[in-house]
Amino acid sequence: MQVSPKEIISLIALTSFVFLIAPIFLIRYVLLYNRKKKKHEEEKKAMVKTLETELLRTQMEVQEQTLKTIAYDLHDNIGQLLSLTTITLSSIDLDDRSKAAEKIALIEDLTARSTKEVKALSRMLHSEELLSRGLFSAIEFELEWMKRSDRFRINFVKPTFESFNNDSGKETIMFRLFQEIINNIIQHSKATEIFVNLEQIDGTLKMDIRDNGVGFDVAETLQRKNGMGLHNIKKRAAIINGTAAIESRRGTGSSVSITVPY
């Protein structure tokens, strides 16, 4: 079968038409991909903004927590010591020299204890500075503070190195997570023993906090309004690309594990 020149010319025209259509689709794909790139960039920017906002909020919460601790300590501890000092001072009878000496010695002891408490409070006021020395040191300091109350037996295990390669934002959020979990234990658990374990597993840092308290129903609490705290823990862990696993049953204590890459 012989193909006529007319048919070949039509074929050339058709091929040219197809060759003309192809770039239209190509340009359309490139533009579509570019639009997705823009969307991705916007999402990235939004994530950075969320992280910054969350970090700012966390920093404020850490400060607030510190101020609360100081207020409690001033009221329950230093306040009591100073009241006792005042009462003792006013009860001194200078005529009874032997008793007066005894009372002055007691006042000296009370004043020394007050000074010690004030110094500890001063250190507490610099909690952000404390965090700059590393997350583990900050957690250790906080736990040491708790030990003073003799309300809890505390077991703390930490790695020998400091974490996060100067990612102070991540450390602040981790520290705040630690504070929130500890606050929950203090307020609701009725625990007598707290276990805090920090360990490094395959490029991740795992912070495990357990207690021997009354426990709670995790699913039920998450559904209730007062489950906001737990949701907050999960949300904050997700912001630093981590996860929070909360496990508890009534009567068996509770455990929260935060795992974050670093």
Binding site: I12, T15, S16, F19, L20, A22, P23, L26, I27
Partner: peptide, 9 residues
Amino acid sequence: LFFYFGSTA
């Protein structure tokens, strides 16, 4: 691209 690709045939 339109011009050089389209003129190929």
